[in-house]
């Protein structure tokens, strides 16, 4: 089982809280001010982004997939 970041772009309002407080600088807002994870390999799955997201747009899920690269 691998852990993986999952984003809900439809719910994300681009406030940037997750980006600012990520301890590993994994996250960014894209050109449309939606969350994405350009450095997902650095993620330590501390869940701080998930817990602080006001839009419930981030989930850390467990997956069977080999790759933990983000979409």
């Amino acid at each position: 089982m691998k852990k993986k970041l999952k984003f809900n772009r439809d719910w994300c309002k681009g406030c940037g809280i997750c980006v600012e407080f990520c301890p590993k600088n994994v996250l960014e807002l894209d050109d449309e001010l939606k969350i994405y994870a350009p450095r997902s390999g650095d993620c330590i799955f501390c869940k701080m982004c998930e817990l602080r997201c006001p839009d419930i747009a981030i989930q850390i899920i467990e997956t069977q997939e080999e790759s933990d690269e983000e979409k």
Binding site: D10, K13, G14, I17, L51, R52, C53, P54, D55
Partner: peptide, 21 residues
């Protein structure tokens, strides 16, 4: 009903998030 009506960055969403957990 999601996404909710609260503004970007509104703390109420964080409270909702914590309450559910």
């Amino acid at each position: 009903f999601m996404p909710h009506i609260w503004c970007p960055g509104c703390g109420h969403g964080i409270v909702l998030n914590s309450l559910v957990r």
